[in-house]
Design a protein around this nucleic acid. Sequence first.
DNA 1: AGGGCTTAGTGCATTAATTCACTAAGTCAA
DNA 2: TTGACTTAGTGAATTAATGCACTAAGCCCT
Lengths: 230, 230
Amino acid sequence: MTQLQRRKIPDAAIARLPVYLQILNNLAAANVLRFSSDELAALAGVNAAKVRKDLSYLGSYGTRGVGYEVTYLTHQIKRELGLMREWNVVVVGAGNLGCALAKFDGFLSRGFPVIAIVDNDPKKIGRTTSSLTVGDVKDLKSIVRDEKISIGVITTSAASSQAAADALVEAGITSILNFAPVVLSTPSSVSVRSVDLGVELQILSYFEQMRLETGGKSENAPQLNSAGAR
Amino acid sequence: MTQLQRRKIPDAAIARLPVYLQILNNLAAANVLRFSSDELAALAGVNAAKVRKDLSYLGSYGTRGVGYEVTYLTHQIKRELGLMREWNVVVVGAGNLGCALAKFDGFLSRGFPVIAIVDNDPKKIGRTTSSLTVGDVKDLKSIVRDEKISIGVITTSAASSQAAADALVEAGITSILNFAPVVLSTPSSVSVRSVDLGVELQILSYFEQMRLETGGKSENAPQLNSAGAR
DNA sequence: AGGGCTTAGTGCATTAATTCACTAAGTCAA
DNA sequence: TTGACTTAGTGAATTAATGCACTAAGCCCT
């Protein structure tokens, strides 16, 4: 393999790496030094061969007969995912969800500090929520530039979400996490991941319905989301 | 095909049906009566053949040369997903995210009213948030029974999430939406979907990193999450 | 030093998902 | 009524993902 080019990791594997990483953090906290693919597989709820294959995309970082080192592999996964640094985040939409996410510990603790929050509603602009003052979406461009923001999170209403996306793109953002139940249209150079909480419940509804109809005999497919961004 | 048995719809297709449904709602709101697979494909950002195949799993509800009827197909998708009725929801964990979700319009409007919210922290129990009083997680069983709750949403800390899941299962819940960054262990008869917001950002981070390394030349795979629940 | 044991890495078969490209079935205009 | 046109439905090819089962390496005990 030519050295320079980055390995092409399958989307499905990319989506699992953060899960492995989370588990490695827990192992480290429990002072575990080493683990085998079997152990990680059990903790992640997947097949051991899949763990080995996923990790092999990073390189050959295990030791046969022994396993993988927690700290070393943690480092490698973080490197691959681009987590050796922090990525600043701006939240667009200062409603319930937006404010909750701005305070949300799970962003900061994983290296994604929410640096700014903006809205287009004059009634919300200027309010303060957890040490952040709601800015004007019109100022997005300068905020993104001045605060070196890399990722935009859209928590507006469905109706405003496309405008929010347009504003983010215009401001130079190339990674968007969208919570509005809308398929955004953006240039192909921008990565978009959409989390539609309604969709999640509707999928559960399908299986619940199934269970009622079949009297609970239905088997459950494994839950796995693929990576990839549009 | 024997009539009684429910069609087996691929996970990937199940995950797309709610997206189509959302778009159909928008079309209906715009007084559109009919649409072709090409049109829906464009709106959903997918391939037209995929749309036709996905819809064909529901039955043969289109008309060749014409397309599909918005209201009729809406009905069929809702029937298939089990959305002809409401499913009551309980939120476990009355922190920022839990309270925001309890108020969140996107749940109620899609047929998933949040009927109760519980916590294990005495300081939070008894507080009121948007017409709901925080209950005690110890009372989960009776709450689930009395309020006919079908779905549990976990918004606790990572540390408490497994206990929350156990409590939900113990209370008879068979569908769980988990926001804690933990791989829950539950009986196989329970459907679990996990939404880890940190993971979503970490996936974006990967592509952002990639873009930096390759000078923006990287192509983007389409974002698609499969259904399925564990 | 050697043999048995453990476990990573991987080629290959299998399964799932996607997409192509064709066929069937309808509309509409003349 | 016929022929041109549109579009759903689907068999089959392709691509992606998974998981088995084997091989290669390293450790440890005697």
